[in-house]
Structures are given as C-alpha cells and as structure tokens.
C-alpha cells in the first residue's frame, strides 16, 4: 500500500495514533490501550467498566439521527417480506448476522485503535451500493456531531476533520465508544443492537405492529447479539495486527438491492 497509506499508521501495525488534544479530560480511561499504554487495559471479553455509557450510546434516543432510518424495513414491508412478528424476526436475524456483524466488527476495530481511515475504506468495500454508502456516511456525520458534544475527544476531532462529509457510521460508533471509555466489545454491542433494533422499531410504525411483539423479537435475538458482539470484538482486535482483511464482510443481497430501490421512491416514511 506504500504511498497509498492513509491516516497515521506505523507499519506493520494498523494502530491509529492521534496526538493528544488540548483538553485532556476526555481521553479514554477504560478503553483499549494505545500501543504505548500500561498493561492495565481490560482483557478481551472482560466485563467492561462503563456499562452505563454503553446504554447511553446504544439508546435509540441518543440524538444521532437513527429515528429517521428503518434499516431496510420500509422496503421489506412494501415488498411483503416483513408483514408480522415472525417475518420481522427473520429479517432482523438476517440483518444482525450480515450487515450487523460487519458493522459491529468495524466498530470494534475502531474502538480497539485501528486507523479509522483504513476502516472507512474497508467499509466502502463492504458497502457495494451507493444508497447505503450515503446513508452510512450521513448517519456517521450525525453521530459524530452528537459524540463530539457528548464525549469530546481529539480522536473524534481528527476523524471529523479528515472526513467532513461523514465517515461510515460504525467507524464513528467505535471511536465514540472509545471516547466514552468503552472497550471494543461494547462498541460491537452498540452496532449489533442497532442493526436489529432499528428495523424492529421502524416496523412498529410501518405495520402498526404490537410494540410488545417487536420488543420480544429483540429479546429473542439477544443471545445472538452476544455472540455477534464477541465475534466482532475478537476480529476487531485481530485487525490491529492483520489489517481490515481480518474483519468480517458478511453481506445480504436483498438489503443492498432493496436499499437502492428505496432510495428512488418519491414518497417514503424513512430516509433508508
């Protein structure tokens, strides 16, 4: 990759190092250790401190624009692929294990300290349709705004400056988690939860689905979210040394195809 290297990477590692900013209080305190940090960071898979911060980040009310996006549910409802709780569950399960896993691993890698510009490029390669690239960058930009206000960090500032039109949302999510003092697995949880939670809450509005049914769908998927988050965190750590090729690239054809269809609709409830 010689002259094409982006960001500030010291070969052969993919770690990202940002010079500390003026305001020191927002530096990650429990997050994954930068290369030169003392070995006091929690081990992979350890229960993370800062669980409350994860709840804030993953909360559907976190003001980062998610409420206007259906995660593909609006197109799937129109095509008849989601029409009740059972089909919603199948949809959410498929999204969690494909786009959700991919997003969770990107988030985990960003939280682990992999160069976010390398991850942003990896996210582009994993997002073959422009409708979803646009959505990911728009949501990334909105999340960046909320995260910088909530957990100020020089790393977030640096990525915002490098990608003023927005980096891919999972990359920002991982960096936001890091700024909030969360570990890679927590970042993966936030992304994984959103991948299923977004369509589930949209389906309530789209189908007038019983909200208890939609929440039950999420509860039934919870053990799978645990596994996805663990797998994503493991891959995120490996990406520190192996690069973004170590990250999953799980894809779902209908999510891609339908997203491009949805973007062309003249009338719709959700932005994606």
């Amino acid at each position: 990759m010689d002259d094409t290297v982006v960001g500030n990477r010291s070969s052969p590692s993919y770690r990202w190092e940002v010079p500390p900013g003026r305001n020191g209080w927002a530096q990650p305190t429990h997050g994954p250790a930068p290369a030169n940090a003392p070995a006091s960071a929690p081990a992979v898979g350890a229960v993370a401190p800062g669980t409350a911060a994860l709840l804030i980040l993953a909360d559907g009310r976190f003001p980062a624009g998610g409420h206007a996006h259906s995660g593909g549910a609006e197109a799937a409802v129109k095509a008849g692929r989601i029409h009740d709780a059972v089909t919603l569950e199948a949809f959410c399960r498929g999204r969690l294990h494909t786009a959700g896993l991919t997003a969770a691993a990107l988030a985990a890698a960003a939280a682990a300290g992999v160069d976010p510009l390398v991850l942003d490029e990896a996210a582009d390669a994993r997002t073959p349709v422009p409708a979803l690239r646009t959505t990911a960058r728009r949501l990334g930009r909105q999340l960046m705004r909320a995260a910088r206000a909530t957990w100020p960090s020089p790393e977030l500032d640096a990525l915002a400056a490098a990608r003023p039109r927005g980096a891919h949302q999972p990359v920002v999510q991982g960096l936001a988690a890091r700024a909030a003092g969360l570990d890679p697995r927590a970042a993966a949880y936030a992304a994984a939860y959103e991948s299923a939670g977004g369509p589930a809450s949209a389906a309530v509005r789209l189908l007038s689905l019983d909200p208890f049914d939609a929440t039950t769908v999420l509860a039934r998927l919870a053990p799978e979210m645990d596994r996805i988050a663990a797998r994503a965190a493991e891959a995120g750590h490996r990406a520190l040394d192996e690069g973004p090729g170590a990250l999953p690239a799980a894809a779902a054809p209908l999510l891609d195809i339908a997203a491009e269809q949805h973007a062309a609709w003249p009338v719709r409830l959700f932005a994606s």
Partner: peptide, 21 residues
C-alpha cells in the same frame, strides 16, 4: 427536505442532528 421517519416532532426537538446537517 429532511426525512423524519414519521416523527417530525422528534426531528425538530428530540434528535435535531439531521436538521442541523
């Protein structure tokens, strides 16, 4: 035009990020 996911009050009050953009 900002899309609001069927909830304009959310987009102007609770989560203003899309409008700020």
């Amino acid at each position: 035009a900002v899309e609001t996911g069927a909830c304009p009050h959310t987009a102007i009050r609770d989560d203003i990020s899309a409008n700020l953009e």
